[in-house]
Design a protein around this nucleic acid. Sequence first.
DNA 1: TATGAATGAGGATTCATTCAT
DNA 2: GATGAATGAATCCTCATTCAT
Lengths: 210, 210, 210, 210
Amino acid sequence: MSRLARGPDGGRPEASRQQLVTIAIDCFARHGFQGSSIDRIAKAAGVTKGALYYHFRDKEDLLLEAVQNRIGEFERHVVEAVAASEDAQERLKRVVDACFFTATASNHRRFIITLMVEALDTNPRLSDKFRMVLRRMRGFLADVVTAGQRRGTLRTDVAAADAAALIAGTIMGAEIQHYQDPNEVDLRRVLDAHLQQLADWLARPAGTAA
Amino acid sequence: MSRLARGPDGGRPEASRQQLVTIAIDCFARHGFQGSSIDRIAKAAGVTKGALYYHFRDKEDLLLEAVQNRIGEFERHVVEAVAASEDAQERLKRVVDACFFTATASNHRRFIITLMVEALDTNPRLSDKFRMVLRRMRGFLADVVTAGQRRGTLRTDVAAADAAALIAGTIMGAEIQHYQDPNEVDLRRVLDAHLQQLADWLARPAGTAA
Amino acid sequence: MSRLARGPDGGRPEASRQQLVTIAIDCFARHGFQGSSIDRIAKAAGVTKGALYYHFRDKEDLLLEAVQNRIGEFERHVVEAVAASEDAQERLKRVVDACFFTATASNHRRFIITLMVEALDTNPRLSDKFRMVLRRMRGFLADVVTAGQRRGTLRTDVAAADAAALIAGTIMGAEIQHYQDPNEVDLRRVLDAHLQQLADWLARPAGTAA
Amino acid sequence: MSRLARGPDGGRPEASRQQLVTIAIDCFARHGFQGSSIDRIAKAAGVTKGALYYHFRDKEDLLLEAVQNRIGEFERHVVEAVAASEDAQERLKRVVDACFFTATASNHRRFIITLMVEALDTNPRLSDKFRMVLRRMRGFLADVVTAGQRRGTLRTDVAAADAAALIAGTIMGAEIQHYQDPNEVDLRRVLDAHLQQLADWLARPAGTAA
DNA sequence: TATGAATGAGGATTCATTCAT
DNA sequence: GATGAATGAATCCTCATTCAT
């Protein structure tokens, strides 16, 4: 019996599959797609390559599953976080906090961002998936902004879509800089500055009618 | 005589070396470092692998030369652009425009950003180089901001370093989204929104003393 | 099932690994280390290069395993041969015979000697290994001589270490000449002459006290 | 003008050719034939590969020339040394001394021995050459022995050819051990022991008629 | 004489993938 | 479910050799 199957689930089918995905995520996050050989993942999981091929059709299948998994979790996390508030600025802050959390508590945001860039032009299937992810993210942010504009807490002369692209991009850009130079770029501090920036920028100018 | 040497330079020594770099940049930009096999680059250049190895010690050497080349050009471009103005907001606009230009007129910004992310954890030497690049970029932006603050055209209650990290990150984030989904993300439009955002955010509040 | 596994061992695990070593020894003996490409060895074994890399980390690993293997066998052979006798001259003869046997019945001595010379300055790790081999061999021969001197059957005014180096060297030199020119140099005959030489040289002069 | 041509010969044709050979010998001696790339030799000589190809048809041609050169010098050296004496034992000593000299004053003996072993089965043309070299050497030694036997200074019940093979082999074997383990094997000491061994072994037994 | 540029074959190594057991 | 053995294509790199200038 493999090391994995002896986990808390006691060998229940699907248990080890899920754990393989978890370990694969870690590997991909650390070394990228091309840098994570099947053998490396298998060794990290304490199984043989054959076991991976029993569970996943091929390497891309494993990757897609891993991505799906993390994206799903992240999006659920964001949706939940935002649901708890009605105020637009507060909701944007919660989105940013969710990103910060996923970026630092685990390396899952890094996993996503790294792979997304690596997938550009390299892997159409994966690229499509990420394109959809970012579209959803922007759509989600745009909805938050639009809602705020309707409620009168955000200025209305800024296109929601542009704001969404800017917010999503700024968070990603901050993360990349942090991943690349953690000593110089304090992610929390930069994201807080971004929130301040958003507050100043999107606030309804004083004396404007709601 | 090789195909390359028959170019407009008519066989001038060093010409083919430079053209190899140019072609390599293209390849790296499109497929990343790992995705660009030496053979692929050689074929794109119409020479054999051996020719590449005649000019460059190894694949990393070629990459480093390419990066050096592009970074240098880009930085020179930015410095020149900024020198032409004294106003902080105007200067920031010029930086953004330089990025836009390098991102669209050629694929050189894409080359840099793609490789930078790929290098994370993968290639320490290259990663170091990019770390320095971004530090210089942030330092440069911070200087622009600080100067604006001293002149009284920018608000002083924002840390220049934070503003610099935000600007650099936002540009990168906008570009990535554009590379990934050109139909949905209009880079010019997003960058313009960013400039507007900067203008609103960094402007000295009305009624404040210079 | 691979060609190898169909051998007399009938597919017993580890069988093919051992057979790969055997074939590699042959190849190395005939063409040296640099002259034996992995492909050549693989072809000789009827497997693909990948199979070799499945069993051995790299070419040097294969070589080291092969050397270890042959050296071990040879040394065991020598020790056993010598154990069967008490007389110094007889024991030296047995050492020489063991060398003759390994030189002619198989090509294993040739394998060792060829690689030893090739390793000079070329491969430090291998060179170290061979250095130790020869030290053990000389140490062993010196012990035999010293024992003979103590028992009074060998003259005592010859340093055992010098005798050991001479014997080891003479055997090696004879073998090399034989490998190089088998028609002109009859190994058995030369080694017999050497034994005679040793007998005459090391014999306790008549009329000397034991 | 190349570095070589500026030597003491002042650019006289054939001068640089000879110097190329000298440098090649050094390279071959240090790294063996396979370990000495044309580029390496060219760099060591301060010229380009093309220059080597101007002077020598191919790498083997260069090697052969180098070997020829060293062999010739060595053999001349031996012949001269021996000519100075009439006594067999003394002449053998001079041969041994010549080997010692060429082994230590330069690395030329090492060059020869290393290549000879490397050439076994690897390079028929070179192997032939070395076969002839050793035949000449053995023939020469046998002549010395035979002459000594005729003169009555050496015992006659030893076949001259066998003695020659033994002497040649012992010297080579001593050298190899020394090259491999210079700290443990003092070449001078071992060769002296060999001379002593020869003296004892080949001496005409007391009381035998000349 | 000699160089610089280039070729092309070969060699070590990696890796996704397959498959009998 | 999982393993061990093996494949074969791809990849990086080296090197002897050629040739126009």
